[in-house]
């Protein structure tokens, strides 16, 4: 069998309940959709488990489930999101991401053409990040029981013993950096959603960060903590850092990198870009004297907004557990965790 490229599905245009029932159609789905894209020596065994050998070091292990709507948005789709999200969760812990699992919950009637696009985006993202998808599972649920497709990915990576990155490690005087523009992913998805009657040029920033992060750690092993500011945006991430470490964080409003088009869409909707999701950014806490070195590495990364990477704030001993924004006018305000669902304002 030729396993080189995703072949169009033979008999059905859409996914049927039987594709998840473990019989002939399940096998066909695996062989015609998943293996051609993901195939590697471990996955190709098609055993009930992936058997892998890991070198020395600590094992990082993470899982994430992706339920984005719409499934396709400017700059990506649920597939690359599902790979990059898990790769990044490993990478920000200082791990080299190695292996992923992929679990699919697919709604009956889902188009194979869409599934193939999603799977192919996963394969491309995995190749770009240098990880292998080594085990997986598919379930098909009835019409209306899920929103097209849900994907779970889990990931394993290895952390060199000399690294101990943790939110708890923030120290007074640390600089806080962010690796590029804020809010791109969340606004790309929100403006692509049905019902929003304006169009924008905003693209999701979904990308694997592991190569940039490993450059940072290679040159600046003094980094204390890293987090990727996904759901809840920078506001949630900074609050998590402050909360876990018992330190305060002060950020300078005029240094926060936000693209004009994202700022504009946020203004229209009454949403704070600092609470909007990112899928290809990292927040780094590092001793002040190495901050410029980290910044240079971020700016050299090939990501489209790396030029907007910035040193945005400082860790302080005042107001422990709290994040304060110093406004351009010299006032101060608390940057709180967003409550949950983003609710656009009335006027």
């Amino acid at each position: 069998m030729d396993l080189q490229c995703p072949a169009p599905h033979s008999r059905h245009e859409t996914v049927q309940m039987a594709h998840g029932a473990g019989g002939v159609l399940s096998r066909e789905l695996t062989r015609t959709v998943f293996l051609p894209s993901f195939g590697n020596s471990i996955l190709d065994m098609l055993d009930d488990q992936a058997r892998i050998s890991l070198g020395p070091g600590k094992i990082a292990f993470t899982t994430d489930t992706f339920v984005v709507s719409p499934l396709f948005f400017p700059g990506g789709n649920i597939g690359d999101l599902a790979v990059n999200g898990t790769v990044n969760d490993l990478a920000v812990g200082g791990a080299v991401p190695l292996y992923l699992s992929a679990g699919f919950v697919i709604e009956e009637g889902f188009f194979f053409s869409d599934l193939t696009k999603i799977v192919s985006a996963m394969a491309t993202a995995a190749a770009a990040a240098g990880v292998s998808i080594v085990t997986g599972d598919t379930k098909v649920v009835g019409k209306g029981q899920c929103d097209g497709i849900f994907i779970n990915t889990s990931g394993i990576g290895l952390i060199e013993d000399r690294f101990d990155l943790s939110c708890k490690n923030l120290r007074e005087g640390d600089a806080i950096l962010v690796s590029g523009s804020l809010g791109d992913h969340g606004m790309a998805v929100m403006t692509a959603r049905e019902g929003l009657s304006f169009q924008s040029e905003i693209s999701s920033d979904t990308v694997a960060l592991n190569r940039m992060i490993s450059s940072i750690l290679r040159d600046v092993p003094e980094v204390h903590a890293m987090r990727d500011p996904t759901r809840g945006g920078l506001a949630s991430t900074l609050n998590e850092l402050a909360d876990a470490s018992g330190k305060g964080i002060v950020v300078e409003e005029d240094r926060l990198p936000v693209r004009p088009e994202v700022q504009g869409a946020c203004e229209l909707l009454g949403i704070d870009p600092l609470t909007v999701a990112n899928e290809g950014k990292v927040v780094v806490a590092v001793p002040q004297k190495r901050a410029e070195d980290v910044l240079r590495i971020m700016q050299g990364h090939e990501d489209a907004s790396s030029g907007m990477a910035a040193i945005i704030g400082t860790v302080v001993k005042e107001h422990p557990g709290m994040v304060v924004v110093r406004t351009a006018l010299g006032g101060r305000r608390i940057l709180d965790m967003p409550l949950g669902e983003q609710l656009p304002r009335i006027c």
């Binding site: 019902g195 009657s197 909707l269 009454g270 669902e341 609710l343 656009p344 304002r345 009335i346």
Partner: peptide
């Protein structure tokens, strides 16, 4: 409009009603 969904009525808000199965939709206009 979105921000009406969290305003408390006598017993609950529209977000809660939505979680109970009501078809409540956010529109921008």
């Amino acid at each position: 409009f979105g921000d009406m969904l969290r305003v408390p009525g006598s017993e609950k808000d529209l977000l809660t009603a939505r979680s109970e199965g009501a078809d409540v939709r956010i529109v921008y206009s």
